[in-house]
Nucleic acid binder design. Structure first.
Length: 404
RNA sequence: GGUGGGAUAUCCAAGUGGCUAAAGGAAGCAGACUGUAAAUCUGUCGGGUUUUACCCUUCAAGCGUUCGAAUCGCUUUCCCACCA
């Protein structure tokens, strides 16, 4: 058995739907699913310490192979005793394979391209050099040196980093690639995933479990083929990757479509999705884990997550807005985070206006705790068989938007 | 008292005859953000309307030169520097 120290046990399945609760057991502890994986791409959550992250009851975080490989280097992580010890996070961890960087470094902008907006306003330059059967070559965004990432190298690096859950190396194809390219890239990703499995088998000591990745873009037959491929191979879980379409609505449709094809006995991760309504939609379709930079990035930019059906009428407020200048109430009266328990919107507004780092830190604490509580609310609703009602309540805004 | 240098939109600051409602910053106002090259980026930023267009007011104040002035001349006011 390739993943002997890991297990995924479903504890409750929604009647009449695919939403389910489960416990994903890793050598560093249990993840109660559905759950959210917080992004510490470069070996750090931006603007929050691992101690504060722990205090929010978050259960799992991730780092990225590509970033850690370039800086400080996998061997330096080994010297520090591995990611868990180095970051002071003796809890479950996941590492992304670096496949996403084939996409994000190959195109000027990430969000715009994946959403099909084609608006390259960002200052980013391409640093992806070439994708071949062997792998992908990049120029380091740090010092311009050349680096190669192959399925073997990605698994070896992830082995050194030591996260519990690791991902096969894949190519995340952009929204604007043709069906033909998406199909060929998917097939190559499948060959890469087989090579990832082989490499994983060579060095597997039971401390890690490998996820396959379902590609195929927006095309149903490709998604089906890719899901079948992953199911037929000995991956512990599967991640849904690649382009999910050009709009939120299309993304929801594609998640619903793809999730029907995956092996539902395995844990299923949805890569890169983290909006509130998006998570409800994912869980409804049987997704167990999510990861996304959205909550933490939003926080640094002044966005405070809030319950959409209370007052605000949206998934977040922008604390920079002048309307909060004199608002001495907390962001969320019902939130038990350090930020909401102690500080007013007026104060956080001031911190942002004054460009004090603490503003982003406090909002990060709030947004992380918000996500942790959101996932707990979702789990409870599944266990109580109130999932569909709660789903409707939390996504009413999305329905409204769809109708208009 | 004398000589020289200044006065530009909320602030700082370009501009020295027409392409100027006026570069560039900052502040302000709003938006975006979804496997993080993002504590970032974008838009807006004198007033008004029937807002892809037009009208009004504006470069200290007044008068003048000119077809045309933030830009040239004179006068006044205020600020700065140096000399008495």
């Amino acid at each position: 058995m390739a993943h002997e120290n890991f297990s995924f046990r479903k504890t409750h399945e929604c009647s009449g739907g695919r939403a389910r609760c489960g416990i994903l057991t890793t050598p560093h502890g249990k993840i109660h699913t559905p759950n959210f994986v917080f992004c510490g791409t470069k070996g750090a959550m931006k603007s929050i310490s691992t101690a504060d992250l722990r205090a929010t009851d978050a259960e799992v975080m991730l780092s990225n192979t590509y970033h850690m490989m370039l800086q400080p280097g996998a061997d330096m992580v080994v010297k520090n005793g591995g990611l868990h010890k180095m970051l002071g996070w003796e809890m479950p961890m996941l590492t992304d394979s670096g496949g996403f960087q084939i996409f994000s470094l190959g195109h000027g902008g990430v969000a715009n391209e994946i959403k099909g907006r084609r608006n390259f306003s960002h200052h980013c330059k391409r640093t992806l050099l070439e994708i071949t059967e062997e792998g992908a070559s990049f120029r380091s965004y740090i010092d311009g040196t050349k680096h190669m990432l192959t399925p073997e190298i990605s698994v070896q690096v992830q082995r050194k980093l030591g996260a519990d859950l690791i991902l096969a190396f894949d190519e995340c194809t952009p929204f604007h690639s043709s069906r033909d390219y998406t199909a060929r890239a998917m097939e190559r990703s499948h060959r890469w995933e087989l090579r990832s499995l082989d490499e994983f088998a060579k060095c597997n000591d039971g401390s890690q479990a490998l996820y396959g990745i379902v590609q195929g873009g927006i095309y149903e037959d490709l998604r089906k083929e890719s899901a079948n491929f992953v199911s037929q191979n000995d991956f512990f879980g599967q991640a849904i990757g690649g382009s999910l379409g050009g709009t939120k609505e299309q993304m929801h449709e594609i998640v619903a479509m793809v999730s029907k094809f995956v092996d539902c006995s395995r844990p299923t991760h949805l890569l890169g999705i983290g909006g509130i309504g998006d998570i409800w939609n994912g869980v409804k379709n049987g997704i167990d884990t999510f990861d996304c930079v959205h909550p933490t990035r939003l926080a640094r930019h002044g966005g405070a997550l809030c319950v959409p059906f209370l007052n605000t009428g949206g998934e977040f407020i922008n604390i920079n807005n002048a309307s909060f200048r004199g608002d001495i109430s907390p962001i969320d009266d019902n939130c038990d985070c350090y930020c909401c328990r102690n500080f007013s919107k007026s104060y956080i507004h001031h911190l942002f206006k004054a460009r004090e780092m603490l503003g982003g830190q406090l909002l990060t604490v709030h947004n992380v705790r918000f996500m942790v509580r959101l996932m707990a609310t979702i789990r409870r609703s599944i266990e109580n068989e109130t999932f569909i009602d709660e789903y409707r309540k939390w996504t009413a805004l999305n329905f409204k938007n769809c109708q208009n």
